[in-house]
Amino acid sequence: MRTINFTLNGEQVSAHVAEHQSIVEVLRDRFDLFGARESCAQGLCGCCTVLVDGTAVSGCLYLAAFADGKKVTTIEGLAQNGKLTPIQEAFLEAGAAQCGFCTPGFVLMAGQLLEAHPDPDDDEIRHYLSGNLCRCAAYPEIIAAVKLAAGRLRAGRT
């Protein structure tokens, strides 16, 4: 067991963790954050996605101990004072969440995508989101949501 200190959704926190514990477990059991959720536990579905220092990682494989001294952002850290981000808004409007289990992962990955490609075409969207699975297959709506958000974000920037 060891103590780690990290920034969680903008707040300084610390936790006592075992060597083998994943970040997703620690977020769930110590911080009551359930938006990153374990599904395949093998880094193959993206349901457990969290951002570490701004980069998306599979939280099921990422050891909590590695988060020491880092900045961790979860889906719960996006909306501020109940105001959804443009990407969350777009997912909501496009009907891109069915059961919603995969949605936090897609929302976070879409954020990464739009940082790298503010005006993505279909191929870029598909390529970027290929590591996230949605068994409800809300894929067409997810693509539509990404495009909708991209347009709004670009409009907001200019």
Partner: peptide
């Protein structure tokens, strides 16, 4: 009417309730 899902906001913010969350 294409009413957006009632729980849409809970789902896009990761706050929707699943048994998974229960301790």
């Amino acid at each position: 009417r294409s009413v957006p899902r009632l729980e849409g906001a809970a789902k896009v913010t990761g706050r929707a309730d699943y048994v998974h969350n229960l301790r």
